[in-house]
């Protein structure tokens, strides 16, 4: 990946090297070390009597090529967690690390699809120019840049709308533009914050399948935050269940459903219902 040579945001400090060593030691060398590793992450806003602990002692990992969903009640602090992972906010304590390097600023190998698509696109740029914006400073050859944009727009089925403005498109289409922008950036890790929350059911199914297709086609590691349990079970290899106030990991549930997943057949499997029930009861359980 051409982004690996420029990563001033990452601080390979001595302490994080130790963390990486100890984890690979724990794994016993049998499995690859986790791509994304969150260790005892806490986030507190304010201080003294007004301090509000939003996230407390979160620990989980995401392996290379995995799709992991984070589910939890609304208002649990999922967006705060993603902001810490994306390097937009510093954690109060604990670390988030990619390949053992602590995240101190937006990492070059990561892209984020925001929850509020209508506010994350530039209304003064056409769809094509929105997708192109993050690519300009990568100094790609013109041909490769155009090819990346075309491929991304085709992947989300928006090749025909390239010259329209985002505000001329429906909500689902706008969210697909945001996804296309992330795809063209070719991140190794894609994080999505309730990406399908405000689109209609049909579009949601399409976008979910698009998400799985991206993983197949581009080999991305994908982390999705959602409050929709069905969606989490359908998409994930593993589901991280969060409890609320403050957010903490209740359990990490491995989802053992056959691939490739299909909106109709996968969702009608008895295992699907079982897994769904497991996750749901975990969330509903009084803390």
């Amino acid at each position: 990946m051409n982004t690996t040579d420029t990563n001033p945001a990452l601080n390979p400090a001595g302490t994080t090297d130790m963390t990486a060593d100890s984890t690979s030691g724990n794994a016993g060398g049998a499995t690859a070390p986790p791509r994304l590793e969150v260790t005892a992450l806490s986030k507190t806003y304010g201080s003294g009597a007004n301090a509000k602990c939003v996230i407390e002692d979160l620990t989980f990992t995401v392996n290379t090529g995995e799709v992991v969903c984070i589910v939890g009640p609304s208002g649990v602090g999922k967006t705060t967690l993603l902001k810490c992972l994306a390097g937009l906010q510093p954690a109060t304590s604990g670390t988030a690390a990619i390949d053992g390097r602590t995240i101190a600023g937006p990492p070059p190998e990561m892209a984020l699809v925001f929850q509020d698509y209508s506010r994350s696109l530039m209304p003064w740029l056409t769809v094509r120019k929105n997708v192109r914006l993050p690519l300009r400073h990568l100094h790609l050859p013109t041909q490769e840049m155009n090819q990346r944009i075309d491929t991304a727009l085709e992947a989300v089925g928006l090749a025909h709308a390239a010259n329209q403005y985002p505000w001329q498109l429906s909500g689902g289409m706008q969210q697909r533009v945001a996804i296309a922008r992330a795809l063209a950036y070719r991140p190794e890790i894609l994080i999505m914050d309730e990406p399908f929350a405000s689109v209609d059911a049909q579009t949601r199914f399409e976008l979910e399948d698009l998400c799985l297709k991206i993983r197949e086609d581009f080999g991305m590691t994908i982390l999705v935050v959602t409050h929709d349990i069905d969606e989490a079970v359908y998409l994930s290899d593993r589901v991280v269940v969060l409890g609320s106030k403050p957010a903490r990991v209740l359990d990490v549930i491995g989802i053992d459903l056959p691939a490739p997943r299909d909106q109709i057949s996968t969702r009608s499997l008895p295992e699907f219902a079982e897994q769904r029930t497991t996750v749901l009861s975990m969330i509903r359980k009084p803390a």
Binding site: P106, M110, L112, F114, R119, S120, L133, P134, H137
Partner: peptide, 12 residues
């Protein structure tokens, strides 16, 4: 959110 987008995509 536009500032966040600019930061995540590491705009100069």
């Amino acid at each position: 959110s536009l500032k966040d987008v600019s930061a995540v995509y590491r705009l100069t």
